[in-house]
């Protein structure tokens, strides 16, 4: 193969890869309650509860710490669910596997947001107590 031809092939391959790649964006997630205290929560992307648990996508578990996730955008919008959890001695007492489980066990409401690539980097959720809860 001639050098020119090789260069052309590589350029074409590079252009194809660039056009076909999925855009990503880094988002910072945080959660507080109505009194503005940090709330421990699990951040679930596109309803993938297994990956969220495996990758420890928790906020405010052992300290007041936000979570940064590099999120791919295969579609225009990506759904992010905030699942409240309970913490004892710096550890999550039970990792929820659904919104209902998170809601029932923690006493706080879950929340969902559909994010776009062009949305603000910092995503703050304000968690509220379940209605009828203490």
């Amino acid at each position: 193969m001639s050098p020119t031809r090789r260069l052309l092939s590589l350029s074409l391959l590079g252009a194809t890869a660039a056009c076909g790649s999925i855009p990503t964006k880094s988002f910072e997630f945080d959660a507080i309650d109505a009194g503005e205290s940090p709330r421990p929560c699990l951040i679930v992307v596109n309803d993938d509860w297994v990956t969220a648990a495996e990758k420890n996508h928790f906020v405010n578990v052992d300290d007041d710490n936000a979570l940064v996730i590099e999120m791919p955008f295969p579609t225009a919008e990506v759904e992010v669910t905030l699942a409240p959890v309970l913490v004892e001695s710096g550890k999550v007492t039970r990792v929820p596997k659904s919104r209902k489980e998170a809601r029932d066990y923690s006493g706080f409401s879950d929340d969902t947001r559909r994010l776009r690539l062009t949305d603000p980097r910092r995503q703050l959720f304000i968690v509220q107590r379940k209605s009828g809860g203490s």
């Binding site: 507080i32 109505a34 009194g35 503005e36 776009r116 062009t118 949305d119 603000p120 703050l124 304000i126």
Partner: peptide, 13 residues
């Protein structure tokens, strides 16, 4: 300029 959407939140105990 930097974001196509802006969100406003309000909270009170």
């Amino acid at each position: 300029t930097n974001n196509e959407r802006i969100y406003v939140q309000a909270t009170h105990p």
